[in-house]
Simulated assay, not measured.
Amino acid sequence: MASFRKRGDKWEYRIKYTDPSNGKRREKTRSGFRTKKEAQIEAAEIEKKLYLRQHSILQNEAMLIKDWFEEWLHTYGSQGSQSTLENRKNYIKNHIIPKLGHYHLSSLPRSEYQKFINNLTNKYAITTVRTIHSIFCSAINKAVNEEKLTFNKYQGISIKKENDIAEEKKNYLTKEEVQVFMTAAKLCAFHHYIIASMLLRTGMRKGELIALEWSDIDFKKKTISITKSRNENRTKAPKTKSSIRTIKIGDVLIEELEKYRLWQKKNKMKFGADYHTSEYVITTPRGKEIGPFGINKVIDTILAKTNLHHITPHGLRHTHAIMVLESGADIKYVSTRLGHATVNMTADVYIHITEKYDDRNVDKLDSYLN
């Protein structure tokens, strides 16, 4: 039964009903009616729908998370930028739907969602986990607004991890660990090894790596020109001007790339019409270009052959920067090589390394003066 009351000069109704998602009693309230009669008319209609199970909350009991997220993307996804839409699609397609898509929208337990978040924190950077959680909650909140759900029970989920600085320190390999990692990479497919080697020896972002074309590599001058980035859907300009850069590479990588280019040519002959012709450097054996999540899988595949802690492709960028700093390069050179907007950005990220070299430089000064 609905109840009614007057608040100020307006009327409101309250209807109590059973939430189909958990069997608990809920209350639907709406105010702003000019007369009690108006409130009674709408309340009677709502009660009728609830009784006949025609209300949207009840009608959507059978809707799967997969179906709602696809509908949400189609309806509301274009309200942000193109890059935001593409990121949402990627996270939903590669993380949310594979793990949670089979649940009914109204019946995913909070505890199961917490387990999903916990598993993500064991594999990905804290910022990635927070982004996925934010996307999930945005879609759930919209489902609440459209009365497909009564409330968002996933708010306040715990995302426990060490602070960002500590995480950045962990997301890299030591010199000894690099040897273990690259030994394991040699046991994998050749293009997997090349991906690992290029990330470690260039410090490129994974988006920059998968956008790289053979014309960007100058084998005579031993340079790589980084002028673009790519995601699952398109190639785009880098976010900042400083990301556009040309870096030097060593003889080892030059030799590996020459072997890899020959490997691609042999595959083209081997697979014939089934080979996907592309100018991209990073491809599958059949010539198909690889996306950012494909790069993640490659690194995970290599790590699975070791006892090393988990790192991301970006962790290999950190590893490269640390190795360059430890080899004696100054922070300005590293900043330019990584494509950072400012030297301060580089110093902030690698402060644990620069502080160590501050101590060494002071010792050198003392030794010189004495």
Rank of each mutant, 00 (worst) to 15 (best):
I353H: 01
A211G: 15
T131S: 04
I157Q: 09
T84C: 02
F69V: 05
V178L: 03
D330M: 03
E256V: 08
S243W: 09
E147P: 13
L365A: 15
K268A: 13
E167D: 01
R230T: 11
L120N: 05
R5G: 02
L199A: 06
K241V: 03
K206F: 02
I254C: 14
T35F: 06
I132V: 12
V180M: 01
G315W: 02
I165C: 00
L58V: 04
L338S: 07
G77E: 12
R261L: 12
S31H: 05
K66H: 08
N145P: 01
M204L: 14
K148D: 02
A237P: 10
S158D: 10
A2K: 10
D359K: 14
E208L: 05
S81F: 09
K288Q: 12
A125D: 05
I254V: 15
A125I: 00
L187A: 13
Q264I: 15
K66I: 00
T29G: 06
L187G: 06
V343T: 13
K259G: 10
A321G: 05
R130W: 01
I117F: 04
G8T: 12
T312Q: 04
S106N: 13
R201I: 04
A2M: 10
H74S: 14
H55R: 04
E86C: 05
L338H: 07
A125F: 00
V349H: 06
I299W: 06
Q179C: 01
M63N: 01
Q59W: 02
S83G: 11
K236I: 10
K16P: 06
K228N: 13
M269P: 02
S106W: 00
I135H: 10
